[in-house]
Design a protein around this nucleic acid. Structure first.
Length: 557
RNA sequence: GUGCCUGUAGCUCAGCAGGAUAGAGCAACUGCCUUCUAAGCAGUAGGUUGGGGGUUCGAGUCCCUCCAGGCACGCCA
Protein backbone atom coordinates (compact mmCIF):
# COMPACT_ATOMS: atom_id res chain seq x y z
CA UNK A 1 0.00 0.00 0.00
CA UNK A 2 1.36 3.42 -0.87
CA UNK A 3 1.60 6.27 1.60
CA UNK A 4 -1.41 8.13 0.26
CA UNK A 5 -3.62 5.08 0.64
CA UNK A 6 -2.18 4.36 4.04
CA UNK A 7 -2.89 7.88 5.26
CA UNK A 8 -6.42 7.81 3.83
CA UNK A 9 -7.18 4.47 5.40
CA UNK A 10 -5.90 5.59 8.77
CA UNK A 11 -7.80 8.87 8.54
CA UNK A 12 -11.05 7.11 7.70
CA UNK A 13 -10.55 4.67 10.56
CA UNK A 14 -9.90 7.52 13.02
CA UNK A 15 -13.06 9.32 12.03
CA UNK A 16 -15.11 6.12 12.08
CA UNK A 17 -13.84 5.25 15.55
CA UNK A 18 -14.55 8.72 16.90
CA UNK A 19 -18.03 8.76 15.37
CA UNK A 20 -18.66 5.35 16.94
CA UNK A 21 -18.16 6.89 20.34
CA UNK A 22 -20.88 9.46 19.66
CA UNK A 23 -23.60 7.47 17.99
CA UNK A 24 -24.67 3.85 17.72
CA UNK A 25 -26.32 4.41 14.37
CA UNK A 26 -24.65 2.62 11.51
CA UNK A 27 -23.12 4.93 8.92
CA UNK A 28 -21.26 4.72 5.66
CA UNK A 29 -17.53 4.48 6.11
CA UNK A 30 -16.09 7.95 5.67
CA UNK A 31 -14.46 8.98 2.42
CA UNK A 32 -11.20 10.88 2.66
CA UNK A 33 -10.10 13.46 0.16
CA UNK A 34 -7.09 15.64 -0.44
CA UNK A 35 -8.17 19.28 -0.07
CA UNK A 36 -7.38 21.56 -2.97
CA UNK A 37 -5.85 23.97 -0.52
CA UNK A 38 -3.54 22.03 1.78
CA UNK A 39 -3.60 24.85 4.29
CA UNK A 40 -6.89 23.22 5.31
CA UNK A 41 -5.13 20.03 6.27
CA UNK A 42 -3.40 17.10 4.68
CA UNK A 43 -6.54 15.03 4.33
CA UNK A 44 -10.15 15.98 4.86
CA UNK A 45 -13.53 14.35 5.13
CA UNK A 46 -17.03 15.57 4.45
CA UNK A 47 -18.34 12.74 6.61
CA UNK A 48 -20.01 14.91 9.24
CA UNK A 49 -21.89 16.97 6.62
CA UNK A 50 -23.15 13.86 4.88
CA UNK A 51 -24.21 12.07 8.02
CA UNK A 52 -25.47 14.84 10.31
CA UNK A 53 -28.80 15.02 8.49
CA UNK A 54 -29.67 11.37 9.13
CA UNK A 55 -28.79 11.76 12.81
CA UNK A 56 -30.62 15.05 13.27
CA UNK A 57 -27.45 16.76 14.41
CA UNK A 58 -25.92 20.10 13.60
CA UNK A 59 -23.21 19.56 10.96
CA UNK A 60 -20.50 21.65 12.52
CA UNK A 61 -21.20 20.54 16.06
CA UNK A 62 -21.15 16.89 14.98
CA UNK A 63 -17.88 17.43 13.13
CA UNK A 64 -16.42 19.14 16.18
CA UNK A 65 -17.37 16.33 18.53
CA UNK A 66 -15.82 13.81 16.14
CA UNK A 67 -12.63 15.87 16.01
CA UNK A 68 -12.59 16.07 19.82
CA UNK A 69 -12.94 12.32 20.15
CA UNK A 70 -10.12 11.24 17.84
CA UNK A 71 -7.31 9.26 19.40
CA UNK A 72 -4.20 9.71 17.28
CA UNK A 73 -2.02 7.16 19.04
CA UNK A 74 -0.19 4.85 16.68
CA UNK A 75 -1.09 6.75 13.51
CA UNK A 76 0.59 9.23 11.21
CA UNK A 77 -1.83 11.96 12.28
CA UNK A 78 -1.32 14.49 15.02
CA UNK A 79 -4.33 16.81 15.01
CA UNK A 80 -7.80 17.45 13.67
CA UNK A 81 -9.79 20.60 13.13
CA UNK A 82 -13.19 21.60 11.83
CA UNK A 83 -13.67 24.19 9.11
CA UNK A 84 -16.21 25.60 6.69
CA UNK A 85 -19.63 23.97 6.71
CA UNK A 86 -18.33 20.97 8.66
CA UNK A 87 -15.19 19.52 7.10
CA UNK A 88 -13.00 17.49 9.40
CA UNK A 89 -9.41 18.29 8.52
CA UNK A 90 -6.62 15.98 9.61
CA UNK A 91 -3.01 17.02 9.91
CA UNK A 92 -0.19 14.59 9.40
CA UNK A 93 2.82 14.45 11.66
CA UNK A 94 6.40 14.44 10.57
CA UNK A 95 6.78 10.67 10.43
CA UNK A 96 4.58 10.36 7.35
CA UNK A 97 6.74 12.75 5.33
CA UNK A 98 9.92 10.97 6.42
CA UNK A 99 8.48 7.59 5.48
CA UNK A 100 7.47 8.84 2.06
CA UNK A 101 11.05 9.81 1.28
CA UNK A 102 12.54 6.64 2.71
CA UNK A 103 10.08 4.68 0.59
CA UNK A 104 11.09 6.49 -2.59
CA UNK A 105 14.75 6.03 -1.87
CA UNK A 106 14.24 2.36 -1.14
CA UNK A 107 12.35 1.64 -4.36
CA UNK A 108 14.35 3.86 -6.69
CA UNK A 109 13.59 3.16 -10.34
CA UNK A 110 10.63 1.01 -9.27
CA UNK A 111 8.97 3.74 -7.21
CA UNK A 112 5.45 4.15 -8.51
CA UNK A 113 4.92 0.49 -9.33
CA UNK A 114 2.15 -1.16 -7.40
CA UNK A 115 0.55 -4.56 -7.28
CA UNK A 116 -3.02 -4.57 -8.57
CA UNK A 117 -5.79 -5.93 -6.38
CA UNK A 118 -7.19 -7.44 -9.53
CA UNK A 119 -4.29 -8.13 -11.91
CA UNK A 120 -5.32 -8.82 -15.47
CA UNK A 121 -3.69 -10.03 -18.64
CA UNK A 122 -4.35 -7.10 -20.93
CA UNK A 123 -3.71 -6.54 -24.60
CA UNK A 124 -3.38 -3.00 -25.82
CA UNK A 125 -3.74 -2.67 -29.57
CA UNK A 126 -2.83 0.68 -31.07
CA UNK A 127 -1.92 2.52 -34.26
CA UNK A 128 -2.68 -0.47 -36.54
CA UNK A 129 -2.40 1.91 -39.48
CA UNK A 130 -3.15 0.66 -42.96
CA UNK A 131 0.17 -0.46 -44.44
CA UNK A 132 -0.77 1.16 -47.73
CA UNK A 133 0.84 4.54 -47.10
CA UNK A 134 2.54 6.87 -44.64
CA UNK A 135 1.29 7.25 -41.09
CA UNK A 136 -0.52 10.44 -40.18
CA UNK A 137 -1.05 12.57 -37.06
CA UNK A 138 -3.86 10.38 -35.79
CA UNK A 139 -1.48 7.42 -35.83
CA UNK A 140 1.11 9.52 -34.03
CA UNK A 141 -1.27 10.42 -31.24
CA UNK A 142 -2.55 6.86 -31.04
CA UNK A 143 1.00 5.57 -30.81
CA UNK A 144 1.90 7.78 -27.89
CA UNK A 145 -1.39 7.08 -26.19
CA UNK A 146 -1.14 3.31 -26.58
CA UNK A 147 2.49 3.12 -25.63
CA UNK A 148 2.07 5.29 -22.53
CA UNK A 149 -1.09 3.50 -21.49
CA UNK A 150 0.60 0.11 -21.82
CA UNK A 151 3.45 1.28 -19.64
CA UNK A 152 1.08 2.73 -17.05
CA UNK A 153 -1.03 -0.43 -16.90
CA UNK A 154 2.09 -2.46 -16.42
CA UNK A 155 3.25 -0.20 -13.56
CA UNK A 156 -0.21 -0.54 -12.05
CA UNK A 157 0.32 -4.27 -11.73
CA UNK A 158 -1.12 -5.76 -14.92
CA UNK A 159 0.48 -8.02 -17.49
CA UNK A 160 0.44 -6.10 -20.74
CA UNK A 161 1.05 -7.03 -24.33
CA UNK A 162 1.28 -4.47 -27.12
CA UNK A 163 0.02 -5.32 -30.55
CA UNK A 164 -0.08 -3.86 -34.04
CA UNK A 165 -2.81 -5.28 -36.28
CA UNK A 166 -1.63 -5.32 -39.87
CA UNK A 167 -4.52 -4.95 -42.31
CA UNK A 168 -2.88 -6.94 -45.07
CA UNK A 169 -6.05 -8.41 -46.48
CA UNK A 170 -9.24 -7.11 -47.98
CA UNK A 171 -10.20 -4.14 -50.09
CA UNK A 172 -7.57 -1.62 -49.09
CA UNK A 173 -4.77 -3.99 -49.93
CA UNK A 174 -6.43 -4.86 -53.23
CA UNK A 175 -6.57 -1.18 -54.11
CA UNK A 176 -2.97 -0.81 -52.99
CA UNK A 177 -1.82 -3.63 -55.27
CA UNK A 178 -3.84 -2.32 -58.20
CA UNK A 179 -2.33 1.12 -57.74
CA UNK A 180 1.21 -0.22 -57.76
CA UNK A 181 0.42 -2.32 -60.82
CA UNK A 182 -0.89 0.72 -62.66
CA UNK A 183 2.21 2.75 -61.79
CA UNK A 184 4.44 -0.12 -62.82
CA UNK A 185 2.74 -0.40 -66.18
CA UNK A 186 2.85 3.36 -66.63
CA UNK A 187 6.56 3.22 -66.06
CA UNK A 188 6.95 0.81 -68.96
CA UNK A 189 4.17 1.82 -71.31
CA UNK A 190 4.00 5.54 -70.63
CA UNK A 191 1.74 7.40 -68.22
CA UNK A 192 -0.87 8.39 -70.82
CA UNK A 193 -1.27 4.82 -72.07
CA UNK A 194 -2.30 3.20 -68.79
CA UNK A 195 -5.38 4.35 -66.86
CA UNK A 196 -4.96 4.78 -63.11
CA UNK A 197 -7.75 3.25 -61.00
CA UNK A 198 -10.26 5.92 -60.03
CA UNK A 199 -10.16 5.16 -56.31
CA UNK A 200 -6.47 4.16 -56.30
CA UNK A 201 -3.82 5.54 -53.99
CA UNK A 202 -2.56 8.75 -55.56
CA UNK A 203 0.50 9.20 -53.36
CA UNK A 204 4.05 9.60 -54.60
CA UNK A 205 5.09 6.63 -52.44
CA UNK A 206 3.19 4.28 -54.78
CA UNK A 207 5.33 5.42 -57.71
CA UNK A 208 8.44 4.90 -55.60
CA UNK A 209 7.42 1.34 -54.81
CA UNK A 210 6.65 0.62 -58.49
CA UNK A 211 10.00 2.06 -59.47
CA UNK A 212 11.82 -0.03 -56.88
CA UNK A 213 10.15 -3.17 -58.20
CA UNK A 214 11.06 -2.20 -61.74
CA UNK A 215 14.68 -1.58 -60.75
CA UNK A 216 14.86 -5.01 -59.16
CA UNK A 217 12.84 -6.99 -61.70
CA UNK A 218 12.87 -5.03 -64.92
CA UNK A 219 10.11 -5.29 -67.52
CA UNK A 220 7.87 -8.26 -66.79
CA UNK A 221 5.18 -7.42 -69.34
CA UNK A 222 3.27 -9.04 -70.83
CA UNK A 223 2.32 -11.55 -68.18
CA UNK A 224 -0.53 -12.81 -65.97
CA UNK A 225 -1.43 -9.42 -64.56
CA UNK A 226 -3.44 -10.85 -61.70
CA UNK A 227 -0.45 -12.80 -60.45
CA UNK A 228 1.78 -9.78 -60.96
CA UNK A 229 -0.66 -7.60 -59.04
CA UNK A 230 -0.51 -9.96 -56.05
CA UNK A 231 3.25 -10.03 -56.24
CA UNK A 232 3.34 -6.25 -56.33
CA UNK A 233 1.02 -6.05 -53.31
CA UNK A 234 3.33 -8.31 -51.36
CA UNK A 235 6.32 -6.32 -52.53
CA UNK A 236 4.62 -3.09 -51.47
CA UNK A 237 4.03 -4.44 -47.98
CA UNK A 238 7.63 -5.59 -47.75
CA UNK A 239 8.63 -1.97 -48.37
CA UNK A 240 6.03 -0.29 -46.19
CA UNK A 241 5.98 -2.49 -43.11
CA UNK A 242 9.66 -2.17 -42.18
CA UNK A 243 9.38 1.55 -42.80
CA UNK A 244 6.44 1.79 -40.40
CA UNK A 245 8.35 -0.21 -37.85
CA UNK A 246 11.35 2.10 -38.20
CA UNK A 247 9.25 5.24 -37.92
CA UNK A 248 7.54 3.91 -34.82
CA UNK A 249 10.80 2.84 -33.24
CA UNK A 250 12.25 6.25 -33.91
CA UNK A 251 9.27 7.44 -31.94
CA UNK A 252 10.21 4.94 -29.22
CA UNK A 253 7.17 2.80 -29.85
CA UNK A 254 7.67 -0.91 -30.14
CA UNK A 255 5.38 -3.91 -30.06
CA UNK A 256 5.34 -7.39 -28.66
CA UNK A 257 3.35 -8.65 -31.62
CA UNK A 258 2.61 -7.69 -35.20
CA UNK A 259 -0.54 -9.61 -36.01
CA UNK A 260 -1.48 -10.13 -39.67
CA UNK A 261 -5.10 -10.00 -40.74
CA UNK A 262 -4.28 -12.42 -43.56
CA UNK A 263 -3.39 -15.09 -41.00
CA UNK A 264 -7.02 -15.16 -39.87
CA UNK A 265 -8.10 -16.11 -43.38
CA UNK A 266 -5.31 -18.66 -43.78
CA UNK A 267 -6.12 -20.36 -40.48
CA UNK A 268 -9.83 -20.46 -41.31
CA UNK A 269 -10.67 -18.41 -38.22
CA UNK A 270 -12.78 -15.92 -40.15
CA UNK A 271 -14.91 -18.67 -41.62
CA UNK A 272 -15.12 -20.45 -38.29
CA UNK A 273 -16.15 -17.29 -36.47
CA UNK A 274 -18.86 -16.52 -38.97
CA UNK A 275 -20.14 -20.09 -38.55
CA UNK A 276 -20.32 -19.53 -34.81
CA UNK A 277 -22.29 -16.36 -35.39
CA UNK A 278 -24.67 -18.23 -37.67
CA UNK A 279 -25.11 -20.84 -34.96
CA UNK A 280 -25.90 -18.09 -32.46
CA UNK A 281 -29.01 -17.35 -34.49
CA UNK A 282 -28.30 -13.67 -35.01
CA UNK A 283 -27.67 -13.92 -38.75
CA UNK A 284 -29.82 -14.06 -41.87
CA UNK A 285 -29.32 -14.04 -45.60
CA UNK A 286 -30.63 -11.26 -47.78
CA UNK A 287 -29.86 -10.61 -51.46
CA UNK A 288 -27.08 -13.21 -51.41
CA UNK A 289 -25.27 -11.52 -48.52
CA UNK A 290 -24.98 -12.77 -44.95
CA UNK A 291 -26.14 -10.23 -42.36
CA UNK A 292 -25.87 -10.02 -38.63
CA UNK A 293 -28.92 -8.77 -36.78
CA UNK A 294 -27.01 -6.18 -34.74
CA UNK A 295 -30.24 -4.23 -34.29
CA UNK A 296 -31.20 -6.95 -31.78
CA UNK A 297 -28.42 -5.52 -29.61
CA UNK A 298 -29.48 -1.92 -29.86
CA UNK A 299 -27.41 -0.95 -32.89
CA UNK A 300 -28.87 1.37 -35.53
CA UNK A 301 -28.78 -1.11 -38.34
CA UNK A 302 -27.80 -4.63 -39.28
CA UNK A 303 -24.31 -5.34 -40.58
CA UNK A 304 -23.03 -7.41 -43.46
CA UNK A 305 -20.67 -10.26 -42.58
CA UNK A 306 -20.23 -11.79 -46.02
CA UNK A 307 -20.88 -9.81 -49.15
CA UNK A 308 -22.88 -11.11 -52.07
CA UNK A 309 -19.59 -11.60 -53.95
CA UNK A 310 -18.58 -14.15 -51.33
CA UNK A 311 -15.91 -12.01 -49.61
CA UNK A 312 -16.02 -11.43 -45.88
CA UNK A 313 -16.28 -7.86 -44.64
CA UNK A 314 -13.79 -6.12 -42.38
CA UNK A 315 -16.38 -6.48 -39.63
CA UNK A 316 -16.33 -10.27 -39.94
CA UNK A 317 -12.53 -10.35 -39.90
CA UNK A 318 -12.45 -8.03 -36.91
CA UNK A 319 -14.78 -10.29 -34.94
CA UNK A 320 -12.51 -13.21 -35.76
CA UNK A 321 -9.51 -11.14 -34.70
CA UNK A 322 -11.01 -10.28 -31.33
CA UNK A 323 -12.16 -13.84 -30.85
CA UNK A 324 -8.53 -14.80 -31.36
CA UNK A 325 -7.45 -12.31 -28.69
CA UNK A 326 -9.89 -13.60 -26.09
CA UNK A 327 -10.50 -17.24 -26.88
CA UNK A 328 -7.22 -18.32 -28.50
CA UNK A 329 -4.73 -16.17 -26.66
CA UNK A 330 -6.62 -15.88 -23.39
CA UNK A 331 -6.53 -12.18 -22.63
CA UNK A 332 -8.77 -11.09 -19.75
CA UNK A 333 -9.17 -7.69 -21.26
CA UNK A 334 -8.49 -6.03 -24.58
CA UNK A 335 -8.06 -2.30 -24.98
CA UNK A 336 -8.15 -0.98 -28.55
CA UNK A 337 -7.22 2.57 -29.36
CA UNK A 338 -9.23 3.91 -32.25
CA UNK A 339 -9.80 7.23 -33.92
CA UNK A 340 -13.12 8.74 -32.86
CA UNK A 341 -14.30 8.44 -36.47
CA UNK A 342 -14.67 4.70 -35.80
CA UNK A 343 -16.97 5.12 -32.84
CA UNK A 344 -19.88 3.65 -34.76
CA UNK A 345 -17.98 0.37 -34.80
CA UNK A 346 -17.65 0.06 -31.00
CA UNK A 347 -21.05 -1.17 -29.94
CA UNK A 348 -21.45 -3.71 -32.74
CA UNK A 349 -17.99 -5.15 -32.08
CA UNK A 350 -18.77 -5.66 -28.41
CA UNK A 351 -22.18 -7.11 -29.17
CA UNK A 352 -20.84 -9.47 -31.82
CA UNK A 353 -18.45 -10.85 -29.22
CA UNK A 354 -21.31 -11.17 -26.76
CA UNK A 355 -23.18 -13.19 -29.37
CA UNK A 356 -20.41 -15.78 -29.47
CA UNK A 357 -20.12 -15.91 -25.70
CA UNK A 358 -17.01 -13.77 -25.19
CA UNK A 359 -18.57 -10.93 -23.19
CA UNK A 360 -17.24 -8.11 -25.34
CA UNK A 361 -19.41 -5.63 -23.47
CA UNK A 362 -17.31 -5.98 -20.35
CA UNK A 363 -13.97 -7.18 -21.66
CA UNK A 364 -13.40 -5.21 -24.85
CA UNK A 365 -12.70 -1.58 -24.17
CA UNK A 366 -12.25 0.98 -26.87
CA UNK A 367 -10.38 4.18 -26.10
CA UNK A 368 -11.59 6.68 -28.64
CA UNK A 369 -9.21 9.37 -29.61
CA UNK A 370 -10.29 12.70 -31.02
CA UNK A 371 -8.64 14.37 -33.98
CA UNK A 372 -5.36 16.23 -33.98
CA UNK A 373 -5.26 19.73 -35.38
CA UNK A 374 -1.83 20.97 -36.39
CA UNK A 375 -1.37 24.67 -35.85
CA UNK A 376 1.31 27.05 -37.05
CA UNK A 377 1.37 30.82 -36.80
CA UNK A 378 -2.16 30.71 -35.47
CA UNK A 379 -3.53 28.83 -38.47
CA UNK A 380 -4.55 25.25 -39.10
CA UNK A 381 -1.90 23.42 -41.10
CA UNK A 382 -3.40 20.96 -43.52
CA UNK A 383 -0.42 20.22 -45.71
CA UNK A 384 3.31 20.21 -45.38
CA UNK A 385 4.87 23.27 -47.00
CA UNK A 386 7.79 21.17 -48.21
CA UNK A 387 5.97 18.24 -49.78
CA UNK A 388 2.53 19.69 -50.38
CA UNK A 389 1.08 16.52 -48.88
CA UNK A 390 -0.51 15.73 -45.56
CA UNK A 391 2.15 15.79 -42.87
CA UNK A 392 3.28 12.26 -42.04
CA UNK A 393 4.72 10.91 -38.85
CA UNK A 394 8.21 10.86 -40.30
CA UNK A 395 7.85 14.47 -41.53
CA UNK A 396 6.88 15.46 -38.01
CA UNK A 397 9.88 13.73 -36.48
CA UNK A 398 12.19 15.42 -38.97
CA UNK A 399 11.09 18.75 -37.54
CA UNK A 400 10.29 18.10 -33.92
CA UNK A 401 12.37 16.36 -31.24
CA UNK A 402 10.90 13.03 -30.12
CA UNK A 403 10.61 14.22 -26.52
CA UNK A 404 8.57 17.25 -27.51
CA UNK A 405 6.35 15.25 -29.87
CA UNK A 406 5.67 12.60 -27.26
CA UNK A 407 4.98 15.15 -24.57
CA UNK A 408 2.65 17.19 -26.78
CA UNK A 409 0.63 14.21 -27.98
CA UNK A 410 0.06 13.19 -24.39
CA UNK A 411 -0.95 16.59 -23.06
CA UNK A 412 -4.67 16.20 -23.53
CA UNK A 413 -7.25 13.63 -22.52
CA UNK A 414 -7.81 11.27 -25.43
CA UNK A 415 -11.45 12.24 -25.86
CA UNK A 416 -10.73 15.91 -26.46
CA UNK A 417 -9.49 17.42 -29.68
CA UNK A 418 -5.77 18.00 -29.58
CA UNK A 419 -4.34 21.21 -30.85
CA UNK A 420 -0.69 20.67 -31.71
CA UNK A 421 1.29 23.88 -31.99
CA UNK A 422 4.19 23.10 -34.33
CA UNK A 423 5.98 26.37 -33.63
CA UNK A 424 5.81 25.80 -29.89
CA UNK A 425 7.02 22.21 -30.08
CA UNK A 426 10.22 23.13 -31.93
CA UNK A 427 11.08 26.01 -29.63
CA UNK A 428 14.07 25.35 -27.46
CA UNK A 429 13.04 27.78 -24.77
CA UNK A 430 10.92 28.20 -21.72
CA UNK A 431 7.71 28.59 -23.65
CA UNK A 432 7.90 24.94 -24.54
CA UNK A 433 6.29 23.04 -21.67
CA UNK A 434 8.38 19.90 -22.05
CA UNK A 435 11.49 21.88 -21.12
CA UNK A 436 9.96 23.05 -17.89
CA UNK A 437 9.91 19.48 -16.65
CA UNK A 438 13.19 18.37 -18.17
CA UNK A 439 14.90 21.46 -16.79
CA UNK A 440 13.89 20.47 -13.27
CA UNK A 441 15.67 17.15 -13.71
CA UNK A 442 18.73 18.74 -15.30
CA UNK A 443 18.92 21.23 -12.44
CA UNK A 444 18.86 18.42 -9.91
CA UNK A 445 21.66 16.56 -11.64
CA UNK A 446 23.64 19.75 -11.84
CA UNK A 447 23.27 20.33 -8.09
CA UNK A 448 24.52 16.85 -7.36
CA UNK A 449 27.49 17.34 -9.62
CA UNK A 450 28.37 20.69 -8.07
CA UNK A 451 28.16 19.18 -4.59
CA UNK A 452 30.40 16.28 -5.48
CA UNK A 453 32.94 18.68 -6.91
CA UNK A 454 32.97 20.28 -3.48
CA UNK A 455 33.55 16.88 -1.91
CA UNK A 456 30.02 16.54 -0.57
CA UNK A 457 28.49 13.13 -1.19
CA UNK A 458 25.10 12.93 -2.83
CA UNK A 459 24.59 9.56 -1.11
CA UNK A 460 23.39 10.57 2.32
CA UNK A 461 23.40 8.06 5.15
CA UNK A 462 20.87 8.36 7.96
CA UNK A 463 19.44 11.74 6.91
CA UNK A 464 17.61 13.86 9.47
CA UNK A 465 14.48 14.05 7.33
CA UNK A 466 12.46 15.53 10.18
CA UNK A 467 14.36 18.77 9.56
CA UNK A 468 12.50 19.27 6.28
CA UNK A 469 9.83 21.64 7.51
CA UNK A 470 9.90 24.58 5.11
CA UNK A 471 6.55 24.91 3.31
CA UNK A 472 8.29 24.41 -0.03
CA UNK A 473 9.86 21.21 1.26
CA UNK A 474 6.59 19.89 2.64
CA UNK A 475 4.72 20.65 -0.59
CA UNK A 476 7.40 18.92 -2.62
CA UNK A 477 7.25 15.76 -0.49
CA UNK A 478 3.48 15.78 -0.77
CA UNK A 479 3.79 15.87 -4.56
CA UNK A 480 6.35 13.06 -4.57
CA UNK A 481 4.10 10.89 -2.42
CA UNK A 482 1.37 11.08 -5.02
CA UNK A 483 3.12 9.16 -7.84
CA UNK A 484 1.89 5.61 -7.11
CA UNK A 485 -1.64 6.89 -6.64
CA UNK A 486 -1.43 8.95 -9.81
CA UNK A 487 -0.33 5.92 -11.82
CA UNK A 488 -3.22 3.89 -10.44
CA UNK A 489 -5.68 6.62 -11.37
CA UNK A 490 -4.19 7.00 -14.84
CA UNK A 491 -4.41 3.24 -15.33
CA UNK A 492 -7.96 2.95 -14.04
CA UNK A 493 -9.23 5.83 -16.16
CA UNK A 494 -7.08 4.77 -19.17
CA UNK A 495 -5.82 8.33 -19.22
CA UNK A 496 -2.05 8.72 -19.63
CA UNK A 497 -2.28 12.49 -19.94
CA UNK A 498 -2.72 12.60 -16.17
CA UNK A 499 0.98 11.84 -15.90
CA UNK A 500 1.91 14.94 -17.90
CA UNK A 501 -0.09 17.09 -15.54
CA UNK A 502 1.32 15.34 -12.53
CA UNK A 503 4.95 15.63 -13.58
CA UNK A 504 4.48 19.32 -14.36
CA UNK A 505 3.23 19.77 -10.82
CA UNK A 506 6.25 17.98 -9.38
CA UNK A 507 8.57 20.16 -11.47
CA UNK A 508 6.80 23.28 -10.22
CA UNK A 509 7.09 22.15 -6.59
CA UNK A 510 10.76 21.46 -7.12
CA UNK A 511 11.47 24.85 -8.77
CA UNK A 512 9.81 26.59 -5.82
CA UNK A 513 11.84 24.52 -3.39
CA UNK A 514 15.00 25.34 -5.30
CA UNK A 515 14.24 29.05 -5.12
CA UNK A 516 13.29 29.08 -1.44
CA UNK A 517 15.74 26.59 0.04
CA UNK A 518 19.49 26.67 -0.41
CA UNK A 519 21.12 23.29 -0.45
CA UNK A 520 24.87 23.64 -0.29
CA UNK A 521 24.57 26.73 1.93
CA UNK A 522 21.76 25.38 4.09
CA UNK A 523 23.63 26.68 7.15
CA UNK A 524 23.63 23.27 8.80
CA UNK A 525 25.19 20.07 7.52
CA UNK A 526 22.31 17.89 8.71
CA UNK A 527 19.74 20.11 6.98
CA UNK A 528 21.91 20.20 3.87
CA UNK A 529 22.07 16.41 3.81
CA UNK A 530 18.32 16.09 4.33
CA UNK A 531 17.80 18.41 1.36
CA UNK A 532 20.23 16.41 -0.74
CA UNK A 533 18.20 13.34 0.11
CA UNK A 534 15.02 15.16 -0.93
CA UNK A 535 16.69 16.13 -4.21
CA UNK A 536 17.58 12.51 -4.89
CA UNK A 537 13.97 11.45 -4.33
CA UNK A 538 12.72 14.24 -6.58
CA UNK A 539 15.05 13.16 -9.39
CA UNK A 540 13.72 9.62 -9.04
CA UNK A 541 10.11 10.73 -9.27
CA UNK A 542 10.74 12.98 -12.28
CA UNK A 543 12.65 10.28 -14.08
CA UNK A 544 10.12 7.54 -13.36
CA UNK A 545 7.23 9.75 -14.44
CA UNK A 546 8.92 10.77 -17.67
CA UNK A 547 9.81 7.16 -18.39
CA UNK A 548 6.12 6.29 -18.23
CA UNK A 549 5.34 8.67 -21.05
CA UNK A 550 8.47 7.95 -23.06
CA UNK A 551 10.24 11.26 -22.51
CA UNK A 552 13.91 11.40 -21.50
CA UNK A 553 15.16 12.97 -18.28
CA UNK A 554 18.34 14.82 -19.33
CA UNK A 555 21.32 15.27 -16.99
CA UNK A 556 22.06 18.71 -18.32
CA UNK A 557 20.52 21.24 -20.68
C1' G B 1 -32.72 13.37 -39.16
C1' U B 2 -30.34 9.71 -35.42
C1' G B 3 -26.06 8.56 -32.30
C1' C B 4 -21.18 9.84 -29.89
C1' C B 5 -17.75 13.80 -28.24
C1' U B 6 -16.91 18.93 -26.91
C1' G B 7 -18.32 24.06 -24.85
C1' U B 8 -14.47 26.77 -18.21
C1' A B 9 -9.75 33.59 -18.25
C1' G B 10 -7.74 37.05 -24.62
C1' C B 11 -5.50 31.79 -26.45
C1' U B 12 -4.60 26.31 -25.26
C1' C B 13 -6.54 23.47 -21.47
C1' A B 14 -7.01 21.13 -15.84
C1' G B 15 -10.67 20.30 -12.27
C1' C B 16 -10.39 12.44 -9.82
C1' A B 17 -16.34 9.52 -7.11
C1' G B 18 -20.65 16.48 -6.17
C1' G B 19 -17.16 19.88 -1.42
C1' A B 20 -14.16 25.02 1.24
C1' U B 21 -11.97 31.28 -2.33
C1' A B 22 -13.07 27.45 -10.11
C1' G B 23 -6.89 26.33 -11.23
C1' A B 24 -2.25 25.88 -14.68
C1' G B 25 0.61 27.32 -19.06
C1' C B 26 0.95 31.07 -22.92
C1' A B 27 0.08 36.27 -24.05
C1' A B 28 0.13 41.49 -20.86
C1' C B 29 2.21 44.25 -16.71
C1' U B 30 5.75 44.63 -12.04
C1' G B 31 9.77 42.82 -9.25
C1' C B 32 14.05 38.97 -8.21
C1' C B 33 20.79 36.57 -10.76
C1' U B 34 28.68 39.16 -7.03
C1' U B 35 25.09 33.07 -4.15
C1' C B 36 23.91 25.17 -6.21
C1' U B 37 21.49 26.19 -14.26
C1' A B 38 16.89 32.96 -14.70
C1' A B 39 14.84 26.96 -19.81
C1' G B 40 13.63 29.51 -12.90
C1' C B 41 10.73 32.16 -8.84
C1' A B 42 7.26 35.81 -6.73
C1' G B 43 3.37 39.28 -7.67
C1' U B 44 -0.71 42.20 -10.58
C1' A B 45 -4.62 41.86 -13.98
C1' G B 46 -7.98 38.66 -16.40
C1' G B 47 -14.46 34.38 -15.16
C1' U B 48 -22.39 35.07 -15.59
C1' U B 49 -17.93 27.49 -15.95
C1' G B 50 -22.53 28.26 -23.63
C1' G B 51 -28.22 29.74 -21.97
C1' G B 52 -32.31 28.08 -18.88
C1' G B 53 -34.55 24.72 -15.39
C1' G B 54 -34.11 20.59 -11.73
C1' U B 55 -31.90 17.18 -7.76
C1' U B 56 -29.41 18.87 -2.23
C1' C B 57 -26.60 21.00 3.30
C1' G B 58 -23.52 22.06 -1.22
C1' A B 59 -23.35 21.69 -8.71
C1' G B 60 -18.00 23.28 -13.36
C1' U B 61 -19.11 18.12 -11.84
C1' C B 62 -25.39 14.55 -11.67
C1' C B 63 -30.57 14.92 -14.51
C1' C B 64 -33.81 17.54 -18.24
C1' U B 65 -34.03 21.15 -22.11
C1' C B 66 -32.30 24.64 -25.63
C1' C B 67 -28.00 26.82 -28.41
C1' A B 68 -23.14 26.30 -30.83
C1' G B 69 -18.93 23.32 -32.87
C1' G B 70 -16.61 18.42 -34.32
C1' C B 71 -17.29 13.33 -35.89
C1' A B 72 -20.01 8.98 -37.53
C1' C B 73 -24.16 6.78 -39.89
C1' G B 74 -21.55 1.97 -47.10
C1' C B 75 -22.49 -5.38 -49.43
C1' C B 76 -15.55 0.68 -47.09
C1' A B 77 -11.78 -0.34 -43.59
Amino acid sequence: MNHIELAMKQGAALIAAAAGKITDKPFKYPVMEIPKNTAHGDFASGFAMRTAGELNLDKRAFAQSIADNIDFAGTYYESASVAGPGFINLKLGNAWFCDVLLGIDGMGAAYGRTASENPEKIMVEYVSANPTGPMHMGNARGGVLGDSLSEILSWAGHTVEREFYVNDAGNQIEKFAQSILARYKQLILGEQNVPFPEDGYQGEDIRTIAKAFFDANGDRLPCDENALKDELGTFGLSVNLPKMRRDLERYKISYDTWFFESSLYESGEVEETVRLLEKSGYTYEKEDALWMRTTDFGCDKDEVLRRSNGFYTYFAADIAYHRNKFATRGFDRVIDIWGADHHGHVLRMQKALDAIGLDGTNRLEIVLMQMVRLMSEGEVVRMSKRTGKAISLSDLLDDIPVDAARYFFNMRASDTHLEFDLDLAVRQDSENPVYYVQYAHARLCSIMKALEQDGISARVRAPRLDMLADPAEVELIRALAQLPEEIKLAAASREPSRINRYVTGVAAAFHRFYTDCRIRDAGDDALRDARIFLCGCTATVLKNSLTLIGVTAPDHM
